[in-house]
Design a binder for these strands. Sequence first.
RNA 1: GUGCCUGUAGCUCAAUGGUUAGAGCGCCUGACUGUGGAUCAGGAGGUUGUGGGUUCGAAACCCAUCAGGCACCCCA
Length: 435
Amino acid sequence: MSKVQNIKGMRDHLPQAMLLRQHILAVVTRVAERFGFEPLQTPVLEYAEVLEGKLGDEEKLIYRFEDQGGRRLALRYDQTVPLARVVAQYSGTLTLPWRRYAYGPSYRGERPARGRYREFYQFDADIIGSSSPLADAEIVALLSEALAELGFPGFTTLLNHRQVLGGIARVSGLDEQAAGGVYRAIDKFDKIGAAGVREELLRLGVSPAAADQILLLVQIEGEPAAVLAELAGRLAGDARATAALENLRAILVGLAAMGVPAERYRVAPRLARGLAYYTGMVFESITPHWPEGSLLGGGRYDELIGQFAGRPIPTVGLAFGIDRLHDVMEELGLGPRASSPATAYVTIFGAELAGASLSLARELRAAGVNTLVSLDPGAGLGKQLKEADRKGVHYALVLGPDELARGEVVLKDLRNGEQRSVPREAVLAAMGAEG
RNA sequence: GUGCCUGUAGCUCAAUGGUUAGAGCGCCUGACUGUGGAUCAGGAGGUUGUGGGUUCGAAACCCAUCAGGCACCCCA
């Protein structure tokens, strides 16, 4: 390797990107803690056998290697399997139900594309050890508040249930074996359309009559309650699907009671999601401004967490894709776009006035104002203001001989170009007053 | 991992196989003041992703490789 570069599919996040990412993380964390979720962090490395056998054929995407001691290690593929390990390992000290959130990188050896990377950051929130539909509803409420506070316009969360899909497959005369391929075909509906899905189903060996039946059921749309009623009628012969629809109904009641606006979610029987371990409700949040895919997704997986503990531990959760949220927000112009966390820049008029400027900067910082100070007293005001401008700082402060003599400071608003001389002790108030 | 498309200045892009690879924006210096953006003048910046090959001659054509994008696959 002669060229200096980073690894394919893994990115450096320069300051402007980091400020937006930190904003996203701060908002999502705030919302999660508002719901009482507790933080957890686990290592990015796990013993390979911890990750193996949980993900099916996706295991080819796991980064694996040996350390110097010959131990077989793997980079975590998501934060769900490590969670299962933690729940088993600390079963004596954790009281269920447990709400936990986790933030950090995960790794998949995929072909990179826009919004998909080999190192990607996720914020996971899960409720471990509750099968209540209120837990499902709470996860959806959390995500709705987070996306709203991030400023996403017109997002919607699509809700479905694995056993509704199962019921659709069974009613159409398919057995469980065929189900996986059928789910994946259905999941492509928004991408390839009804005709495309039909073609795919036929290719999987589904009879034309069954394919038409599946397509009919999967395209049911409308008010959540109406969709549920329609499905209930058509899947009445299937006990598991009927129970699943009852479960979805209870979740919808919870969502309404939690104050989630009705336009923020709908029941979509065509939503499948690829991950094999989901057992109950599944969901995905989408926005018309990002047709490429979902902003986030999740669902209920009652089997996975208990695999290490040796007993079923019902769990529902979601993962925010920080990278994807970042890409979409950047494209839509949402969130902060500054390249510096500073809001103030203190100029230094000349070497002999450096002390006065530095103590002004110290006062601002003591009051909690992020403050940059010039490092080059000889540079001239023009150059210093240019630096302040380029950093996207809101205010520049000038402390020259005249101001010093009068005990004042020139406060310049770099956004509108207005400036005025204010008494030094009133600087903070003046900045606060102008936002 | 498979197929297709693309890599030229910091960014967006030009340049029939033929002089010394250009432009806009950005960047640096200066002109105007105790002051950013605007205007004007000047300047820096390139082994054309990398390595081979074809040719009298390659940014262009061929092969390999690396990286990015799109479609499979899957998903955040």
